[in-house]
């Protein structure tokens, strides 16, 4: 069971990849199939069960599209 939970407002994601780069678990990636309303491949979580809820993705996100909860 994951300790943390992330929510993405994917329609505001600009796919800059800063969260992907700094996620300590390396469990984030850009969704290469989906396009959001801005025309980007938005952020997605690859292995939700490994999320520790550290919040670093949200800390790095320039567009405030990430909300994080932790147990």
């Amino acid at each position: 069971m994951a300790k943390g939970r992330v929510y993405f407002h994917i329609d505001q994601c600009k796919a800059c990849g800063l969260c992907v780069k700094f996620c300590p678990k390396g469990i984030l990636g850009l969704d290469e199939i989906v396009l959001n309303t801005l025309g980007y491949h938005p952020i997605s979580i690859l292995r939700a069960e490994e999320c520790s809820g550290c919040g670093i993705c949200a800390l790095m996100c320039p567009d405030l599209i990430i909300e994080v909860e932790k147990e």
Binding site: R5, G55, I66, E67
Partner: peptide, 15 residues
């Protein structure tokens, strides 16, 4: 669950 990161109140809900 405890909130770790959310939009601060001092920002409007604008993109």
């Amino acid at each position: 669950m405890k909130v770790v990161a959310k939009r601060p109140e001092s920002l409007k809900d604008n993109k």
